[in-house]
Design a protein around this nucleic acid. Structure first.
Length: 305
RNA sequence: GGCGAGAUAGCUCAGCAGGUAGAGCAGAGGCCUGAAAAGCCUUGUGUCCCCAGUUCAACUCUGGGUCUCGCCA
């Protein structure tokens, strides 16, 4: 099994700082697990590592695609797997850092092998949902796959249609795919969570967002629009970007956009915290704990485990 | 100073021919198997501004007071 370190935590919890210090001490490389830092041209709003950070420590899975390209957890598991292998071949322990918990979970625990779904099938289900209503779609799911149906809210169109498309395309209920999926035992992770009081995270978010504005977030967004990217491109649905679309498209008040962006970032952090409560970690740290002594202890602990 | 309108949940407001109240937003809790910075679920007790009066019963009616906002001086 390949040893790896993961660092998770909500936005503005100090992940990058810990990762940089630890990576330098371990003389290793960082793999980003962040569903928005994958996009080129989106630097300020996604709080990407600085040029200096990248110069000091090699970062993977950052700036890999344009903002109009879709990416998903399965893609991440493949890309991260490759990066891990490379780093491991050099006898280093990779550090995986990021706030996209689902990506890391997918990497560590695996995900069932889904075929690509034909666009026509997706469009047809989308159309059926429109005509028949979501309740009908959920009932349909309950008939073909009650195990999955029970676990999906009746209004969760996204997951209902996902389960239906998998059944129609593979002839097998999605819950059966889940059962058949084998557990991944490729990695031996040392999992670290950075956690802090909600109020402190919130005030750090608010402050950091003002800093992003000062650093030129608006200019960055304008540049994206000038390059031809629009609010319909997936990258621009990121928090801190989408809230400004009303400003550029309909001349909404800037102050209101900023408040909305802060609020959505806070809600995002809240959802992350909820997610992490359910995950297991080897070590839970407070951002205040990060100092050279801690890094030294971590270094030793990781080497000995 | 005069006239008018208002004062109800953190915010914006609704409501009751008198039977102690409810929406939206905010907030909180939760879910999560190729969209995860996404998507989705649950959740509303507060001196109904204060004092007095009428009444079996007042947030609701009457009188007074305080404050806020308009318009006129």
């Amino acid at each position: 099994m390949i040893p790896i370190v993961t660092i998770e935590g909500s936005t503005a919890s100090g992940k990058s700082r810990l990762a940089m210090l630890l990576a330098q001490r371990m003389e290793t490389e960082i793999i980003s697990a962040d569903s928005r830092q994958i996009y080129k041209f989106m630097d300020i709003g996604t709080a990407k590592p600085t040029k200096e950070d990248i110069r000091l420590v090699k970062h993977h899975i950052i700036d890999i695609i344009n903002p109009d390209v879709r990416y998903n957890a399965g893609d991440f598991a493949i890309d991260a797997g490759e990066a891990i292998n490379k780093i491991h071949e050099n006898k280093r322990v990779p550090i995986i850092v990021g706030g996209t918990g689902f990506y890391i979970k997918t990497l560590l625990e695996g995900i069932f092998k889904s075929p690509d779904i034909p666009l026509e099938l997706r469009a047809r289900l989308e159309h059926d949902a429109e005509v028949l209503g979501l309740d009908a779609m959920h009932e349909k799911l309950m008939q073909i796959d009650p195990d999955a149906g029970r676990n999906i809210y009746k209004q969760d169109k996204h997951r209902i249609l996902r389960a239906l498309e998998i059944f129609e395309h593979t002839g097998k209920p999605i819950s059966v795919h889940w059962q058949e999926q084998q557990i991944v035992e490729k990695y031996k992770p040392y999992k670290i969570l950075l956690s802090d009081e909600r109020e402190l995270i919130y005030s750090r978010i608010n402050k950091r967002f003002d800093e992003m504005i000062a650093e030129g977030l608006l200019i960055e967004i304008e540049a994206l629009l000038q390059m031809g990217y629009s609010k319909d491109d997936y990258g621009l649905t990121a928090v801190g970007y989408r809230e400004f679309m009303p400003h550029f498209y309909e001349k909404a008040e800037l102050d209101e956009c900023i408040e909305k962006a802060k609020q959505n970032t806070r809600r995002y952090a809240k959802r992350q915290q909820t997610w992490y409560r359910r995950q297991d970690f080897n070590l839970i740290l407070n951002p205040k704990d990060i100092d050279s002594e801690l890094i030294e202890n971590l270094f030793n602990q990781i080497n000995n485990s």
